[in-house]
Nucleic acid binder design. Structure first.
Length: 222
DNA sequence: AACGCGGGGCC
DNA sequence: GGCCCAGCGTT
């Protein structure tokens, strides 16, 4: 009954993680209540390939310069790139954010519920589309980024494909760990746990409350 | 499957 | 100096 064992592992993983998060969860401006759809989506874009702490100090600056889809759609790409400079990826991000804002303007600033329509919006990749469904439409979707992937792979086992987006194992596992818990909380818990404990280069296995059942820990303990 | 993008933080 | 970071579109 390998399937049942895996279910038990998932339940243990969820319980320990949420218990840890209750005491150690991080606090960020984009996790506040009552943010607009615009503010939520901008946060996800700024966060791409960029440390959350970096964006925590920058988020407000961006929103003050461009408080709405309208202002963003009207912006010159060069101005946008200049503002984005401190956080990196600025030329690419300026181009893509601009295209996204103009597309939103065309759509009457309405974010579609339907995933197929969501995916048609430029710069609306898998991660951001999941974030929209999770944070705006309250669906159980994973924030499956490089950090969540690392935690899942260490605890449950390695991926099958190089690219997270097309890996069936990581994709299904990331959905399974959302079952029977608050999806928003467990997503944030995993991201925080990845940043504070299950770090890429120096995982803190000695203070990790999940290490007993972790494959990575079992394989590496001396 | 592999690549470029990018500054800043941390060894 | 190298590695890493709430990815993505492109080739």
């Amino acid at each position: 009954m390998a399937a049942n064992i895996e279910i038990e592992r998932i339940k243990y993983f969820q319980g320990k993680l949420l218990a840890w998060w209750k005491d150690h969860g991080r606090h960020f401006p984009w996790r506040e209540e009552f943010l607009s759809d615009y503010e939520l989506i901008i946060a996800e874009i700024l966060l791409q390939r960029t440390k959350a702490e970096t964006i925590a100090n920058y988020y407000k600056i961006f929103l003050e310069s461009y408080p709405s889809w309208q202002s963003l759609a009207a912006a010159r790409e060069s101005d946008l790139a200049f503002l984005l400079k401190p956080i990196g990826l600025y030329n690419q991000r300026a181009k893509r954010i601009s295209a996204l804002a103009k597309s939103m303007k065309q759509r009457g600033f309405i974010i579609p519920h339907d995933r197929t329509l969501l995916d048609e919006i430029p710069f609306m990749g898998q991660y951001i589309a999941n974030a929209v469904e999770l944070l705006i439409y309250n669906q159980a979707k994973p924030l499956l980024d490089v950090n969540m992937a690392r935690v899942l792979e260490r605890y449950f086992g390695p991926r099958q494909k190089a690219d997270i987006r097309y890996d069936p194992y990581l994709q299904s596992l990331a959905h399974e760990i959302l079952v029977d818990v608050n999806a928003k909380e467990i997503n944030w818990a995993i991201l925080d746990f990845a940043a504070l404990i299950c770090q890429s280069r120096t995982p803190k296995c000695l203070t990790c409350s999940l290490s007993i059942n972790c494959k990575y820990y079992k394989n590496n303990k001396n």
